[in-house]
Design a protein around this nucleic acid. Structure first.
Lengths: 211, 211
DNA sequence: TAAAAAATACATTTTATCAGGTATTGCCGT
DNA sequence: ACGGCAATACCTGATAAAATGTATTTTTTA
């Protein structure tokens, strides 16, 4: 008898579970032992059962996939975990991998991509589906690597700016001189080469640099 | 021989297509005749082939589901179209139905919900999965009903504002008077009771009212 | 088709922001 | 212990935006 990889699928969309299950049933060294719609149920299960491979959605209710991956890997580092989602953001994927994830597949990947990724992940590789690769490889030079990031104070001020506060109001809120706030504003605008606060706020929000 | 409903699935995620196909195969008066990953391919197909039922993802590349639904319904009002997505926004669902959609199902719906909705839709009803129902019924009083929404011109101007354009630049871009743009700006700020452009942009982005 | 909403345009006053340069203090890491 | 960065503060001129008031035309929709 051949030992099959005991595999668990976690996704809050029943149809997706069914789709993946169908796909995996074609792989003969994979055995689907359970399917869950939440991370909590999964955590319970792996306490008492052997699991070799987990395919998990990143956007899950209650616990998100990134944290779930971390939790599992701390206790069971040998379990191979592959993340999935519909859209990918570079930072999310990187975080997932940093938390011990063994791979990341976009749900728009082809069946062949899925199969190949799963096989390679079992083999010990860190795998990504094609579109994920392009997303994580390209913007190294320009987008995320380049942008410096706000200092603490700058973030405070940017946040208040996004709430419609004027320079004077921000100064009052933070117990600073009007002029100090003015300087911070200027520095932030200069740092990101933004023409005005409107463009700045749009930029910061789109890059999740506030909050 | 029983006439089966000729059914088409449109989704850019192969796994989801596979999942739905699996589900539908259990329904004996449904026959899946085609699967597409884009709306363009679907439009080509229905030109030359009879289709009774379409299950389509709302977030599709190139053409989004809402527009796709409208286009199809204009030419083929008899085709039953059910929309699907992972998360639902009230306004999106409403728009879809207004464009002739016969129902809307969240992808986290159970298999039974899927089946029931499909049957009822074929029967001529407008159907929603459970979670969609709660979303479209509850927030009538507070959230989405309250905020008025930008007019076309206002959106144009807000978008350019978010790109850091000045009033004069916007006027030049849109071939308007400087004064007209100024009036629009004023109206937008007044409409949402925003103190300045920074707060406005933050508000609009957080509520997905740009793009 | 009449009323309502949206888009257009103008004028003026007040206030806020942008951009330039400059400088002191404190903290963190090597 | 020093260099570098962050945070603080000041000055000023040019420019942009906000606040207010009014009015015409076009488009939508009830």
């Amino acid at each position: 008898m051949i030992m099959k990889y005991k595999t668990v699928i976690v996704d809050d969309h029943p149809i997706v579970i069914s789709g993946i299950a169908g796909l995996l049933s074609e792989l003969d060294n994979i055995e689907i032992v359970e399917k869950f719609e939440s991370g909590i149920a999964l955590l319970d299960y792996i306490e008492d059962n052997k699991v070799d491979l987990i395919l998990m959605d990143i956007f899950l209710p209650v616990i998100n996939g990134v944290d779930l991956c971390k939790t599992i890997k701390q206790k069971y580092p040998k379990i191979v975990i592959i993340g999935m989602s519909s859209q990918s953001e570079r930072s999310l994927v990187m975080q997932f991998i940093q938390n011990g994830g063994n791979g990341y597949i976009l749900k728009n990947a082809s069946f062949d991509e899925f199969k190949e990724c799963i096989y390679k992940a079992i083999d010990g590789e860190i795998v990504f589906s094609e579109e994920v690769k392009t997303i994580i490889s390209q913007p190294l030079s320009e987008d995320l690597e380049k942008i410096p990031g706000l200092s603490r104070r700058e973030r405070d001020i940017a946040l208040l700016l996004s709430q419609g506060k004027s320079t004077q109001e921000i100064a009052d809120d933070l117990f600073l001189s009007f002029l100090t706030v003015q300087t911070h504003r200027r520095n932030i605008l200069q740092k990101y080469k933004m023409k005005n606060v409107a463009e700045l706020i749009a930029f910061l929000l789109k890059n999740n640099m506030l909050n």
